[in-house]
């Protein structure tokens, strides 16, 4: 048998149904594994699976043909398929959230909390952006402290019902939800200083910090992505970078209470 995959052979023979059967037979497990990883609710898993299948089949298998036709595959087919599933799941979630919001969630929220839900979860705004927008449009008397309390309530209500991908696509929870004993509010000045401090780092150090600290990717996996020797090389870079960032914040006179 040729080293070519069976589904591709069938596609070349002009037998799309046989090609699809062969493709699903080989990759159904991977598709479901990736979808279950990204999506929380069982009904959502089935809907996303249907959506992914439709998108992979559309335009005479355009996506699959394009990968197969590439002269130079940088990624394994199976890894590429995981990235495609994630991308399509993002599309599905945005389409769903654009036209429908879970009624059970909305019913338990106040008017202000629904506005926060809309700006942070649906429109994807940062907390600071959402606060400024809501204060300017809806509630001029709203202060940031009060906003954070309402925001925390929204997160508590919503997060338990969300899958991994939905959490990835939403602004991170406010500090009082993430770390109970840390009370941090990132003001505009502190954000600017932090951004400037990050610019002092090399691109590789910046990505290492973001992936390891913010995205919580295991150090060994960060090493693989960045072409570093091992997890220890990541630890070294991250801790050295954190020290630099900390020094910048200290030099600017910013401590926990300012952040």
């Amino acid at each position: 048998m040729s080293p070519t995959e069976q589904w591709l052979v069938e596609l070349d023979r002009g037998r799309p149904e046989a090609a699809w059967d062969a493709f699903l037979g080989r990759y159904r497990g991977l598709l479901f594994g990736a979808i279950r990883y990204y999506v929380h609710d069982h009904d959502d898993v089935m809907d996303v699976f249907t959506w992914v299948c439709e998108r992979l089949r559309e335009d005479d298998f355009r996506r699959l043909r394009r990968y197969a036709g590439d002269a130079d595959h940088r990624a394994r087919f199976s890894t590429w398929l995981v990235a495609v599933v994630r991308n399509l799941a993002v599309d599905w979630l945005r389409r769903r959230d654009g036209r429908l919001r879970p009624p059970a969630v909305e019913a338990s929220l106040t008017c202000l909390q629904r506005r926060i839900l809309e700006e942070v979860f649906t429109n994807g705004r940062s907390h600071a952006e959402a606060f400024e927008l809501i204060r300017s449009r809806d509630d001029g008397a709203l202060d940031f402290s009060g906003f954070l309390k309402e925001l925390a309530t929204v997160y508590r209500t919503v997060m338990g019902q969300r899958g991994r991908l939905e959490r990835e696509l939403t602004a991170p929870p406010p500090p009082d939800v993430v770390v109970a004993d840390v009370d941090l509010v990132v003001g505009e000045e502190a954000r600017s200083i932090l951004a400037g401090a990050m610019q002092q780092l090399s691109a590789r150090d910046r990505v290492a910090v973001q992936m390891y600290v913010v995205d919580e990717v295991p150090a060994a996996d960060v090493a693989r992505v960045l072409g570093l020797k091992d997890a220890k090389a990541v630890y070294n870079r991250v801790y050295r970078s954190l020290k630099v960032l900390r020094e910048h914040l200290d030099a600017a006179g910013l401590g926990r209470s300012d952040l």
């Binding site: 590429w80 696509l169 991170p172 941090l184 502190a190 932090l194 951004a195 991250v238 952040l259």
Partner: peptide, 28 residues
């Protein structure tokens, strides 16, 4: 340091950013 900077970086991260011309495709 990690806790402080990490929380600050997370809080300062945009929730969503648009795809640009230079953005990486699925294969990359």
């Amino acid at each position: 340091d990690m806790e402080l900077v990490g929380v600050a970086l997370r809080a300062a991260s945009p929730a969503r950013s648009r795809e640009g011309a230079a953005c990486l495709d699925d294969q990359r």
